[in-house]
């Protein structure tokens, strides 16, 4: 094929994947916040201003910020000059698709996850309109923490874009697609999960505002632990970057892709699942501050066990890369 045709194919597919996948989660998340805001107005019709303010802040910091990331990457994919326009080949196409997958799947999760704290914050403000400031502040922090999987995905997408290579090389194609899948799919579950955990914390703060400091602290811990699978995905993506010396051939391509798929998709269930553990634990701690320690321990054990699958996936990814 002509280099120009390949270049166009790569740019079109990459930008489409990035914005298409990236928009889904943010759209659903912002809808959740709006639904909860409407429900809150039904309960407190006089609190129009407070409700609308909370809802708009929740939507802007949640879905709004998250959907900017795929937009930036899509613009880069569309307009970034190729290093050598005459030598555009399979590497270029794979790089663009890999970057699109990384940020598309990666921002899907955080966009959706940011809906939970926004929705529960609207709920909390409807329950207790005078507590709007502490609730909104902690909602924004919870959403910002839930966005760190997307930031990881953004790092890998940018690294892929800025290290594009001319020509066609099977190993390079494997590396870029594998890295994109590892961090993209790997950030999907943790994004949703840490959002769910933040939702539980904000629910607790809304219902028991007197315990907000303890609840908030445990909410941050719960969210951070949910993100372990995304960090495994980031680790595998960085490890893949060091594997250029593999011998060229289809076996290497299969190994690199398998490592990316294992580390990425293995983390989805673990991320979402440990989010549920975090959600109920945060609510329970808000209700029973004196049992904080036993609840926290149970939560950490439960999250660790539910992340077993992600650990297995990481082990298999490393075995596939280094031993097989």
């Amino acid at each position: 094929m002509e280099p120009q045709t390949l270049e166009a194919i790569g740019r079109i597919f990459g930008a489409g994947i990035a914005v298409g996948l990236g928009g889904i989660g943010a759209g659903i998340g912002m809808g959740m916040v709006a639904a909860s805001g409407d429900e809150g107005l039904m309960r407190q019709p006089t609190q129009n201003n407070a409700m609308v303010r909370t809802m708009l802040i929740g939507q802007a910091v949640g879905g709004g910020t998250v959907s900017v990331f795929p937009l930036v990457i899509a613009i880069l994919i569309l307009f970034m000059p190729a290093t050598d326009p005459e030598m555009v080949g399979g590497n270029f196409v794979a790089t663009m698709i890999g970057a699109g997958l990384a940020i598309g799947l990666g921002s899907f999760g955080s966009g959706l996850g940011c809906g939970w704290p926004g929705a529960t914050a609207c709920d909390g403000v409807a329950r207790n309109p005078r507590k709007i400031t502490p609730i909104t502040l902690r909602m924004v922090i919870g959403q910002a923490v839930a966005q760190s999987p997307t930031i990881f995905a953004m790092v890998i997408a940018l690294l892929l874009l800025f290290t594009q290579q001319p020509g066609t090389d099977v190993v390079h194609i494997g590396i870029v697609l594998g890295a994109g899948l590892a961090i993209g799919a790997g950030a999907l579950g943790p994004g949703i999960g840490s959002g769910i955990a933040a939702g539980g914390g904000i629910t607790g703060i809304g219902k028991w505002p007197q315990n907000q400091d303890v609840t908030f602290r445990n909410m941050l811990v719960a969210q951070a632990v949910c993100q372990t699978p995304a960090i495994f995905g980031l680790l595998v993506a960085f490890v893949l970057f060091t594997r250029h010396a593999m011998e060229p051939g289809w076996t290497s391509l299969a190994q690199l892709l398998a490592a990316g798929i294992a580390a990425g998709f293995g983390g989805i269930g673990a991320g979402i699942g440990s989010g549920f553990a975090g959600e109920t634990a945060c609510e329970a701690i808000a209700a029973r501050v004196r049992s904080e320690n036993v609840i926290l321990r149970t939560m950490l054990t439960g999250q660790a066990v539910s992340q077993t699958t992600a650990v297995y996936a990481l082990v298999i990814a490393l075995v596939v890369l280094y031993i097989v």
Partner: peptide, 8 residues
Amino acid sequence: MDDIGERY
């Protein structure tokens, strides 16, 4: 790309 992996 190798040097990025090696950098990190």
